[in-house]
Design a protein around this nucleic acid. Structure first.
Lengths: 346, 346
DNA sequence: CTGTTAGCGCATTCAA
DNA sequence: TTGAATGCGCTAACAG
């Protein structure tokens, strides 16, 4: 860890000679620009002697190749776009991480942006990304505006839609069926024999779809109505606590199981229950979603829906790589499924 | 939310005519390429009539400008690099979010990568990023390899180092003094009169620096030794729980305050304490770090060191923008400080 | 208001 | 093994 700090030489060198190019390096090494290019892309095509001279010239000048120019010349940017609703949400962040780890191995870089949950915001982001000419693009979810769809198709690059499932993807789809998770949770809840059920859900479309499926199945099986609370905002501990309070006060919910759209909400419910002297799962049982890192380590541990985010990221990356290598396979829609993980909370 | 799904026309159109360019658009609109360029960058310089024709041609072709070519021509990529140790760590993610939100307003995009905690890994990432010719770059921390430093300086672009503090930044530095936070926590611990202290820390350099400062100050003030546990891995709930167990068993720690390098560890300690029938803060008091979103909402709420990550991101962005606008100010080292937030856990 | 001419820095022919 | 020429798609002068 060196730390020889020299205040930067504030050379706002504008006029000319601002960038070290292959031309510069070549001149210094006594060869042409092309040879420098070769030395970098395929050293075996250059004699050891000149190779060495070029190396020195590079070291001396601190030359860093201009990937923009390279991309323009080859029509390969070695850049891959990734669009997620929110980077601060670990669920998406970890998926992107496994996606990008895999691709970085192959020399790609990831251009990451947030889209929020609105298809129209997403549209702008997509346009901005496509203008960088990425070699492929990853999107979260399967609902995109018509214009987005058109741009995507027009770009001619591989498109992966993750974190959901459709039989008619734009190109490739890697994910799971949200409604199924809700139904599975309902089946689980019924099988455990809780006397009542409620839901707490964030406001995004996918969460609502899970919730709706849960309620539909639960009422179908038990003929009981299910009080629900839908947040406008995002899933946080504080919201989880608040929602349990509201459920108990306003909705007259006394006991039973609560299906939450996120482990964070579930955790909040558990904390609030304890604060109110209610026992989990005896009085209030809780089912979360996501199997986040903390889910297994809180007390009681959270029964939840596990989706293998790393697997999504990897599968998405592999699919992209296959396309880029023309080891192409046909219109994909990969359903990686999910699993109900039974733990202490329900 | 449209969803007219048409399986992609697997046109791997390679040969020619693969991209729609300004040339294509111009031809369609009956004007030259330059006019299209003008229409996009400064519509006022083009007559309304031709502007309209160009608009139509663009809509018709689905033209998306090639930002790579633009960047090459202008030497402005409108791209800003951000390097953080780990994107899945909310602490860094939220900082990057506020950074990029601000910059996106100005038309910039963020090229984000993980560096891990090793300066040599960082070095490679820096090189890769600089090859994209970003207009500025954000780094986490103040320790970088000599070569990194050289490349950064050579690039001639604004460089912001965040999340730490030094009086001799490469260019701009926005953050806080880690050692100070450890000392402040020690002072707080002593002022509360706990009979003993211990530390639980993640293995990264900054966390260790906080821990060392805590111990130095605490022993200085009380002449007591401080048992410490340093993790190899990252800060998780599970590790927090495990560390408390080890503290109680191996280190014969019975009661007192524990300074954790992260709120996550602190939360784990609190959970484990409850599981063991220990009261917080009466038996075991806990001080966290970061003031993460959940810190105020667990039971008891976590006393912690608050650093305003959003402010860091914004300040970093503003500094970068000032440089890029030549509203430049001199060698910056902005210390945004921190605050001990007293809550229930200590 | 519009078009022509030059590059931007690199990779890809084709010759030598 | 090396070099000269050409083009990637766009912007920036300069003319008209």
């Amino acid at each position: 860890m060196e730390d020889k700090r020299t205040p930067r030489p504030r050379s706002s060198r504008k006029g000319k000679g601002r960038g070290v190019t292959m031309e510069t390096v070549g001149r210094l090494a006594g060869v042409s620009q092309v040879t420098v290019s070769r030395a970098l892309s395929d050293p075996s095509k250059v004699s050891p002697a000149t190779l060495e001279k070029i190396r020195q010239a590079i070291a001396q000048t601190g030359f860093v190749p201009n990937a923009l120019a390279g991309a323009l010349a080859t029509s390969r940017s070695m850049l891959i776009s990734a669009l997620v609703p929110a980077i601060t949400n670990v669920v998406y962040a970890s998926m992107v991480k496994s996606f990008s780890d895999r691709l970085r191995e192959q020399g790609y870089q990831i251009l990451l942006s947030e889209t929020g949950f609105d298809p129209l915001d997403e549209e702008k982001v997509i346009a901005a990304h496509l203008s960088r000419r990425p070699d492929a693009i990853l999107l979260t979810g399967i609902y995109h505006s018509a214009k987005s769809r058109q741009m995507l198709l027009g770009s001619g690059i591989p498109v992966v839609e993750v974190w959901d499932h459709t039989d008619t993807p734009i190109d490739i789809c890697v994910g799971f069926r949200h409604a199924e998770t809700g139904r599975a949770a309902a089946d689980y809840a019924v099988s455990r024999g809780y006397e009542a059920a409620a839901t707490i859900s964030a406001g995004d479309e996918r969460a609502l779809r899970r919730k709706d499926a849960f309620i539909a199945r639960y009422t179908h099986l038990t003929a009981r109505t299910v009080p629900e609370i839908n947040l406008a905002g995002s899933a946080t501990l504080a919201h989880g606590r608040e929602c349990l309070r509201r459920l108990l006060e306003e909705r007259q919910f006394r006991a039973g199981v609560i299906f939450c759209s996120s482990d964070l909400l579930a955790h909040g419910v558990i904390i609030e229950a304890a604060a109110q002297g209610l026992r989990v799962p005896q009085d209030i049982a809780v089912i979360g979603f996501g199997d986040q890192e903390f889910a297994a380590d809180v007390e009681p541990a959270i029964t939840t829906v596990r989706v293998d985010r790393d697997a999504f990221g990897r599968a998405a990356a592999d699919a992209v790589l296959a396309r880029l290598d023309r080891r192409d396979t046909g219109g994909h829609a990969i359903d990686l499924g999910f699993k109900i993980v039974r733990r202490g909370s329900a």
